[in-house]
């Protein structure tokens, strides 16, 4: 059994919030650079250059890449042999968010009630997903999720007879409709299968995979490639102002589903799809 102090978790979450907001994951940075060469629109190339310059400024000046420092999504993988002491895990995570957003000069973007809309003032609560697994590891991933891309995401309960064509049509329609609002070039996270609530969770988790990495299932990897190619023929381009770089990548995660169901969720990630992980 491994014993972990709750305050240790707070410290880690605080640092992950700051790090994720200041520093773009290297795979995304690298992909943006590569895309400049391939982008067909001159304005699109200029926009990609500015996006890269922005990430560099944020890193060197230690400031947020994007002002929308998001609502914090936390993925916790906790080994069943881990014992957390001297505090609640949930409160420890939220305290980490509170401290990170204050000390990192990050924007507080959470309202307490979706109806009354009064800001909580400290960017809590986080949205926390727990996954219990074997062993004695504790892995914490912090993903600050901006609303521009989140608001253009969608879920559809397809019929099994809609098949692969139906999935493709829904994904492409969603990306095209999102246009400039989702801050392209996007990372398109897709969840297929499970049920009404699992598909969007899979889509969100798909955004954590590195740009350029494929699903290990050959059929799904092929579908990712086909979707990426077709999305980049839509013409939407960087910031929706035209071009051949609408998406940097397409990631699909799947789960078994009911004989009558084909849920498909598309969670759009902007060009600042931030996340940072720490494993204890």
């Amino acid at each position: 059994m491994k014993v972990i102090e709750a305050k240790k978790i707070t410290e880690i979450v605080k640092l992950l919030c700051i790090e994720a907001n200041y520093e773009l994951p290297r795979d995304i940075f690298k992909s943006l650079k590569e895309r400049i060469k391939e982008e067909t629109s001159p304005l699109g190339r200029e926009i990609l250059k500015d996006i890269i310059a922005n990430a560099e400024i944020a890193k060197t000046q230690r400031m947020p890449i994007c002002q929308d420092t998001g609502i914090v999504v936390v993925f916790v993988e906790i080994g069943q042999e881990v014992h957390i002491v001297n505090g609640s895990l949930e409160e420890a995570i939220n305290e980490g968010v509170r401290l990170g957003y204050e000390e990192g000069y990050l924007r507080k973007s959470v309202v307490k009630s979706p109806i009354l809309r009064i800001n909580t003032g400290d960017n809590t609560p986080a949205i926390i997903h727990y996954h219990i697994c074997e062993g004695n590891r504790l892995s914490i991933t912090v993903m600050p999720k901006g609303a521009g891309s989140e608001n253009m995401s969608a879920l559809k309960m397809l019929k099994p007879s809609d098949g692969v064509e139906g999935i493709k049509n829904f994904v492409i329609e969603t990306v095209e409709k999102a246009g400039p609002n989702a801050c392209p070039p996007s990372i398109v996270g897709i969840g297929i299968g499970g049920d009404f609530e699992l598909a969007p969770y899979l889509a969100k988790k798909a955004l954590l995979r590195k740009v350029g990495e494929r699903n290990t299932d050959e059929v799904i990897a092929q579908l990712e490639e086909e979707l990426l190619q077709e999305i980049n023929t839509l013409g939407v381009g960087p910031q929706g102002l035209g071009g051949s770089t609408t998406a940097l990548d397409v990631h699909i995660e799947t789960y078994p589903t009911h004989i009558a169901s084909l849920p498909v969720a598309v969670n759009l990630g902007c060009h600042v799809t931030r996340h940072a992980t720490f494993v204890l």
Binding site: I47, D50, I51, A53, N54, A55, I57, A58, Q61, M63, P64, I65, C66, Q67, D68, G146, G148, G179, P180, N181, C183, Q239, G240, L241, C270, H271, V272
Partner: peptide, 30 residues
């Protein structure tokens, strides 16, 4: 950044107003 409604565009034409966009996500640069 992003799309505007038909009503906004009609008002822009009628009363002469312009819609600029800046690069979404380029907060540090701006």
């Amino acid at each position: 950044k992003g799309y505007r409604s038909k009503e906004v565009i009609e008002a822009m034409k009628k009363y002469k107003a312009v819609y600029f966009t800046a690069i979404g996500g380029a907060g540090a640069l701006l």
